[in-house]
Amino acid sequence: MLKTACEVIATHGFGHTRTLDIARAAGVSQALLFYHFETKDQLFAQAFGYAAQLHRNALDSIERLERPPLERLRVLLRRCSPGAAPEGWRLWIDAWAESIRSKHLEEISRRLDQQGRLLLRGIIEEGVAGGEFACADPEASSWRIFALIDGLAIQIHVHPQALSRRRAAQLVRTAAAAEVGVAAADL
């Protein structure tokens, strides 16, 4: 049900999704939905928690990769690409907006953002230590790279005519390469 809830929320948004929409998409009754989730807010929070856990699992798998930092950076940038699946980004963008009003969603999104930045910072630090990267401030670089990714994702998914996915990916690769002191073609 949580997967279905995420799909419906990504399509309609938190503000326009009804529990009836989720129940119908899941092929269950609203009564069954409310048996498992006491309130609509609880359902939304658990659905977003489910989506966040999937993203955390993906980040964990990148962290466990036994590859050089440059390869791990490539994998992370592909995974977090602003041009990735629209459904996923729509859910995240809408969740960020809802986080202004929901302490639970804010906590989940903040922890997830932090995990991504820590992973990126660790990759950069490892690359610097091994002489593969040149970066004076890996923490600041991780903030700038993720801020660019998030901002471009908003542009692509809110204003789809403003920027192509290919151009956004190029902008991210170029910026990330400059942050770590490698050629953009290497990313």
Rank of each mutant, 00 (worst) to 15 (best):
Q53F: 00
L105C: 07
L43C: 07
A95N: 03
R117S: 02
S99K: 06
L2R: 04
L32R: 15
G122W: 13
Y50E: 00
L91F: 13
L119F: 04
R167M: 12
R72W: 01
C80W: 02
P68C: 12
G15C: 04
E179D: 03
V75N: 03
A10H: 07
R74I: 12
R79S: 07
A168P: 11
G27P: 11
T4G: 02
S141P: 09
I154W: 15
D186C: 03
A97H: 15
A178V: 10
K40N: 02
R74N: 08
K103Q: 14
Q53R: 05
F44E: 02
E107I: 15
R167K: 13
L59S: 07
L43G: 08
M1K: 07
H159V: 15
S141L: 08
H159L: 13
E179H: 09
H104R: 14
G122R: 11
S109E: 00
H36W: 13
A52L: 01
R110C: 02
R166V: 13
D21M: 05
L73E: 07
I145S: 06
T4F: 02
I156K: 06
L148A: 00
I108L: 15
Q170D: 00
G15Y: 06
T39N: 00
Y35K: 15
A184D: 00
Q161T: 09
A178G: 07
R144D: 06
S29Q: 09
A97G: 08
A84T: 05
A153E: 03
P138H: 10
S61E: 12
A51L: 01
W143Y: 14
I145M: 14
I123S: 05
T174P: 07
E132D: 08
Q42N: 13
S99E: 01
I108W: 13
R166F: 09
A175Y: 12
L20A: 05
A176Y: 13
S141W: 08
Y50Q: 01
I123K: 09
R117H: 07
G131S: 04
K103M: 12
E87M: 12
G151E: 05
L20S: 02
R144N: 11
H55D: 00
G116I: 06
H159K: 15
A140T: 13
I145Y: 13
P69F: 00
Q114G: 09
C135V: 13
V28S: 06
E98P: 12
E63K: 14
E98C: 13
